[in-house]
Write a protein that binds this DNA or RNA. Structure first.
Lengths: 222, 222
DNA sequence: CCCCGTGTCTACCGAGTGGTAGGGAACTCC
DNA sequence: GGAGTTCCCTACCACTCGGTAGACACGGGG
């Protein structure tokens, strides 16, 4: 019994996947090893055979996510040197990381809430290279007069992290609070678009000569 | 024994205060009734004498916070009709609500993560009036050409909620991730300032450039 | 004086938790 | 065929959880 699943991907990976999902949904204390094991299709002692303790499982889940992040960073780096649309490229690549797996943002956010002193340095290590790219980009932009001179780069980056983390984490729940119910895809599009827009508009000075867009009347968005 | 504390404010209120603190810090499942009772200085059955169950305690905590919010809304409403600096006034009053008690943002955020389907309508009820004020203000600003025409009011409001909630909730932990350690007060100032700046800069069109057709003398930006 | 309501306590309950012991099936290697 | 390894299982452990039972102390009113 339970052998009908053994043809599937290896058990430790399936455990990691389900643990990620359940930790993100119910929190670390709220997701029991029995729940996770059941979701995988095994019993709890089998789970503990692969991961010595619940805490080791938590660390592994986090490590896997940060590894995925590390894999995404080169793409973002590449985007950061990609010509004039740098900001959009960096933004799109960063958002893609969280959009690819909707459990990442809530998982990270929960860790920041539950274990700040433990997770903060871990995140710092992985995020600082990314933050450095963005901060340098901002400072250069300020020198060149493209970026608002009163932007505080580090504080701005912190804001954007908040925006993204919380945006994805509470997306499903806040979505229908303010607006009429919409389809998943449409709501996500709207979220991503506005997230990028806010981040961008709060950063850049307006391009001096801009003949098109200046629409005073009520004709709203397209 | 334990009577040395009975001169202090009434026990139910002290329970609510400690429960708020511990729910915000450790989450609903992570904070046990024993912990809360100990923080108050009583034993668990005494706590359950005042609140019939843990879930009732949770509801009461939430209710108290939303009551405080309801008390803050009139101030915000007043701010919304307060002349040219409307945006700053609304922003300052809104931020004050969360700054007054640092447990409010994490508490709300945790509820949104843990019990979205239950908390969302509750929040919606209390937040929609506030959101309506802001959305109307935005749309009016768009008609008058003060606000970016491509702002999606509801989505923008959702972003700002995220910004504020997550900003306060992860403030303590993210603070030292990106920047050199600073004093509490300074870091908070920086957070509040940048939060307001981002919200504002992503909303308003720059004032100096050129008057499209008609532009009210309201100096929205500084 | 006794009674009753209020509020706190100790002692306990069943259920669920993370974790362990140890057995057994399937497989490989000698 | 036997030994060893890998992996999953049932059964169990101590502990904590939310919640209950019931006793006790206090204070006011007949």
């Amino acid at each position: 019994m339970t052998a009908e699943r053994n043809g599937r991907p290896d058990v430790p990976q399936r455990i990691l996947d389900q643990a990620t999902r359940l930790f993100a949904r119910h929190g670390f204390v709220g997701a029991s090893l029995r729940d996770i094991a059941r979701a995988v299709g095994i019993r709890k002692p089998s789970l503990l055979y692969h991961f010595a303790s619940k805490d080791e499982l938590r660390r592994s889940v986090l490590e896997q996510m940060l590894t995925h992040w590390n894999e995404a960073v080169p793409r973002i780096l590449r985007a950061a040197t990609s010509g004039p649309e740098q900001f959009d490229a960096i933004g799109a690549e960063t958002l893609r990381f969280f959009n690819d797996d909707p459990d990442r943002a809530p998982l990270l956010l929960r860790e920041l809430l539950d274990r700040p002193e433990e997770i903060a340095p871990l995140v710092a290590l992985r995020v600082q290279p990314w933050a450095k790219i963005v901060c340098d980009y901002i400072r250069k932009g300020q020198e060149q007069g493209r970026v608002h001179p009163d932007v505080d780069p580090e504080a701005y980056v912190a804001q954007v992290i908040n925006l993204v983390l919380c945006g994805f984490a509470t997306h499903a729940s806040l979505r229908n609070v303010l607006t009429a119910p919409t389809s998943d895809g449409e709501a996500t599009d709207r979220l991503l678009r506005e997230m990028l827009r806010v981040a961008k508009a709060s950063l850049f000075l307006p391009v001096p000569a801009e003949p098109p867009t200046r629409r005073p009347a009520a004709s709203a968005r397209a």
